[in-house]
Design a binder for these strands. Structure first.
Lengths: 200, 200, 200, 200
DNA sequence: AATGAATGAGCCTTCATTCAT
DNA sequence: TATGAATGAAGGCTCATTCAT
């Protein structure tokens, strides 16, 4: 599907980054269908034609964006696992997390990708693979809480993990349904719920 | 410009329903932009031109779909409020709610509408107005729990309400991210979280 | 082309008038193509379908409008011929004529009809027949000036007549090219030119 | 939105000319609304889509046609002003002018543009701006006659100028009302009228 | 590696006209 | 005589994608 078969020179890599950056911004502002390749090309500072030397087509760009974002999540999971008290780390990170996922720009982009996944099988595949990976990391993280305390991991750990990501995906949706959402008031409630999920 | 101010003959009402049904299906399968008016017309069993005697434009159709769904939610809220024990009613309804919002077909449509709202101000307005109404109903319902027990409604009631809808919106998103989600395992976790939200 | 084959009941005649009146107004405001039959029907206070019981099609309506306007010109020509001093009558009528033909509403309609004639042979035929008739009346009127004075009618009488109508058709065009035209200043110049045309 | 700000490569200039030529012909034959972009594109020998790389929209094409015609008039005005005897030059040019403005093809196009101006404000603006410029040139030319003879310019010079263009616009209309018009007979009458306008 | 001219399919929407009632 | 629901062809315009240079 994509051109990664080729050696991918550093030069080309940098050009790809430019396109990804430009496309993220355009998708955010106009949506996947609303943003034209011409617009993305202009934002990226190159010709429309050349984008097709770097990506197979428009879909391929969205795939690359998802892949890139996934690595950011990887880093977050690593960071929390490295901390001594995972439970505390997660509760603390919840604050930042609420702000991140409800940021209007990033929320619009997420929904855009999700909607495209809802109908485009190729995009769905990419998104679901990324999600499976993130879920595994999260479940591992959650399990650590019980393991480090020498207690048995609850049998519904998978469902608890699911609920964890459900909340943050839900918040992303809320940013669109209710842009005036009171982030400061919501954060403590999120923490209360997380706490409930981390108890036996 | 909008002829829909007219009393709306029963005949026209029925025709509108046909269009709504057809459009829901098409949007689900192809997305808002992916579904053409010609396709919707064909599915609805009428000519493209005639759709414009029933709706102002494509956006107007999505507006009507949202409105129609909203009335289903109205009914649910009414039902729960009418029950003697709101807390129990909500916990019980959670089971069915989880299944409803994660139904693949309805989830795809919801995401489609939400994505369109993310970039189309008119659709955003419609969706946000419906959400505000639903939120008010929900908060009223939640407050009832404390009021009927003669205890003071918690000051963070709005944030709790927000969290309540967040969870269900999140589940809708999960249906796409993780179609294999184990609904039976998740439902009890949802109930556990709801219970936490309904305590002081 | 039109339905005048039928007996044309007085009732139908009145209905036709309603349509003509409505269509004139709509064409004026939106142009021949810009005005929809639905709009004309609404303005005329009847259903779109019924218009087709009174006129064959949209073209037929414009034909009827032209025919109706022609009779107004007939009356003017009659009036001037009846006056003792045709030369004076024409010079005097020039004032009012300038205002009439540069009236923005009627100018727009005239141009609309003319443009349609420029490409629609049927309309062209109607318009040209009406013009031929008007030209004959005008030439007759102009000739009277010399005849009553017992002098020979100039051999270029047809060209002078042509110039006479040219000026008024030109003024109609000017109303669009230059809506701010100073009618009061132009009228005397028109009179000066007319005077030149009425001399040997 | 309008890419025509670009320096406009010679290549693009040539392509624009092709479109203008094709559109003139199509508008002439079918009218502004009657001529489809597909038809214009085919006539111009390019794809419909590409026309939109050269012009903003259909209106923009008519604007360019008007601008192009305007420059021809500019040249004529320059030429006459450069001649020693403006009065003679104008009388002499009248002959050619009569033929030009009554040429059936160009007359139909002019009427088409004028009719569109009668209902489309954007086109009206373009046409009126061009007319204002032409009027200024004409008035300047006319004034020269008195100035060069050391006599005071008449106070009704603006109205005389208006009458001058009125006659030629009128002739254009006549070409449609009366295609059989005798150009050779009319020209001397036009000259007689012009002479009257150029006297004190 | 890079451009941007060029394509052409396809979309939303309008509207003259018809016809069952 | 009168309605207005219904049709379906056509139009302006956009845009992902290609290709000669």
């Amino acid at each position: 599907m994509n051109d990664l078969d080729r050696p991918a020179s550093p030069r080309a890599q940098a050009r790809r980054e430019q396109v990804l950056e430009a496309a993220s911004e355009c998708f955010r502002r106009k949506g996947f269908h609303g943003a034209s390749m011409a617009e993305i090309a202009k934002t990226a500072g190159m010709s429309p034609g050349h984008i097709y030397n770097l990506f197979t087509n428009k879909e391929d760009i969205i795939g690359a964006i998802v892949a890139r974002d996934q690595s950011k999540l990887d880093a977050i999971a690593q960071g929390m696992k490295a901390s001594g008290d995972v439970r505390a780390a997660m509760l603390q990170h919840a604050r930042i997390g609420v702000s991140d996922v409800t940021d209007p720009a990033s929320a619009a982009l997420s929904q855009e990708v999700l909607a495209e996944a809802g109908r485009n099988p190729k995009v769905a595949e990419i998104v679901q693979a990324a999600d499976a990976r993130w879920r595994a990391q999260l479940q591992d993280l959650l399990s650590t809480i019980w393991l480090r305390e020498g207690r048995p991991v609850p049998p519904d750990i998978a469902a608890r993990t699911e609920m964890l990501t459900t909340i943050f995906k839900g918040l992303t949706a809320r940013a669109i349904y209710h842009p005036g959402i009171d982030r400061d008031a919501v954060a403590p409630v999120v923490q209360r719920v997380l706490a409930a999920l981390m108890q036996d």
